[in-house]
Design a protein around this nucleic acid. Structure first.
Lengths: 265, 265
DNA sequence: CTGCTTTTCTCGTATGTTGATAAATTCATT
DNA sequence: AATGAATTTATCAACATACGAGAAAAGCAG
């Protein structure tokens, strides 16, 4: 493990539960010496990722908020998705959510409200349980086998509490079905009374990029045309995928003519 | 400069303009060797702070969105401010914003909409110009002299374009006045047609923590009772300051009895 | 499959990171 | 304001490990 990773591991501490830490507690928890703990915390604070709060405590820093803003206005995927998702929300009145997997976490990265005042528990930035909910199912279903395997091994306990079969064989079977169907409907798995419908969002090489989904009330779902909703999602997912910049050619800083390596130390 | 700081410097590249970078461009731009560039990018990607996009490009990662969520629901300052700010927005119909300074940046960290449909350019996460706008003025006015000095030196150019005197003596004088007044009103400095009113938010030791402000339309401002608005802000700022956890006693991970140093490697 | 680009590896060296201890802040309280 | 207790940084030698050059590997488009 590199010093870089050790430092970044500090951010993990803020993920669950505690949102306030002392440098001492951080060092103790992660097994770093006190000076090292302070060193890391200082570096992160200087980068704005942590903020020193009252009484020698540290909290996540304003830089995170700033970077989040940069994502909202600059991320290619969100930029491509926003318009389509907005239209979809307007047309249907449903909440539309976009989620993705990174590492071993599934997170909602964008959400457009449909105006029916759905108070979904799982809004933007919220981590989703791996084995329940429409998005997780549809994402897991598209994962390459080895990756799914690792995920399952690392999160055995969580798999127990999910709505998918907790054992490996059963899981694979269930996900195969989801993959075949091309969508997933989950009723009340995350919020009681809410129904989620999701489809995978894949690139032209059929690699999973994200999951796109509806959240609607159970009441409405009872009289809704599922096939139609799924079709709408598929269409929207397609549209988003197509409008994703294939390979951003523009980007290489215009000034620099493709240096082979750094010109200076 | 430590390797930690060098790695974190990569995040700066995403701050302005470009939101998509190749590893090669990053290495070139920051003067790192190619392997080092890739190493850093990999570490950041593994932490989720970057995400590998199509075509070997990298963008800010979903972890940022997740951390931002953690701030929204867990940051003591925002938690303390939210309720008060919401009430203030409801009572007045004005937009209410909370901003802070970190390093040499002033950023809006929370915003409550007043329902008058103000489309403020400077919402949550947006970096504000250092020398214009209500929040910047009120924040700079409370800064310790040496820190202000450094800020001014490092941002000479920006000071030119501000609405404060660009020269040091003039700046100090103007800010002294702001400090004495205890509030700042800026008309159309950020958004034409919008007026901002801000007061400093200080802790019991009178150290600056943040700035709390209103954004209202010029039309409304023309017939508004400024003294009253300022008083409302002051009261709210006080209430927020008082409800800030002085020293979070609860936090130290209950399990660990105040270790002197790490028990293991 | 075949070139191409992107990314990781290998490895010796030098640099930078580490932890114990001490010094210096900062902070709360009298 | 001053004291004492906290938090935070500095010192410094030993050691680990981050570094760069080049090569190899892995992805990727045609």
């Amino acid at each position: 493990m590199t010093s870089l990773a050790r430092m970044l591991a500090i951010l993990d501490l803020f993920d669950e539960g505690a949102s306030v830490w002392t440098a001492e507690a951080i060092a103790g928890r992660l097994g770093y010496s006190l000076p090292t703990g302070y060193r890391y915390v200082r570096e992160l604070s200087e980068a704005g990722l942590l903020r020193r709060d009252a009484g020698g405590t540290y909290v996540l820093g304003p830089r995170v908020i700033e970077l989040d803003y940069r994502i909202r206005v600059g991320d290619p995927m969100i930029m491509a998705g926003q318009r389509v998702m907005r239209a979809l929300a307007d047309d249907t009145g449903c909440d539309v959510v976009l989620g993705t997997i990174y590492g071993e976490r599934i997170v909602t990265i964008h959400q457009e409200h449909g105006g029916e005042g759905i108070a979904a528990t799982y809004g933007r930035g919220r981590r989703m349980p791996l084995f329940r909910g429409m998005m997780s199912k549809v994402i897991l279903a598209e994962l390459p086998r080895p990756r799914l395997r690792r995920l399952h091994e690392h999160h055995r306990e969580e798999a127990q509490g999910g709505t998918l079969p907790p054992d490996w064989e059963g899981l694979v079977l269930a996900l195969k079905a989801v993959r075949k169907a091309g969508y997933s409907i989950s009723q009340g798995e995350l919020d009681p009374g809410l129904v989620g419908i999701a489809v995978p969002l894949v690139d032209k090489a059929h690699r999973l990029i994200a999951a796109l989904g509806f959240a609607i009330t159970g009441r409405r779902f009872a009289t809704s045309d599922n096939a139609r909703l799924v079709a709408l999602l598929r269409e929207a997912a397609d549209r988003i995928a197509r409008s994703l910049p294939a390979t951003i050619a523009e980007q290489r800083p215009a000034s620099r003519p493709r240096v082979r390596r750094a010109a200076h130390a």
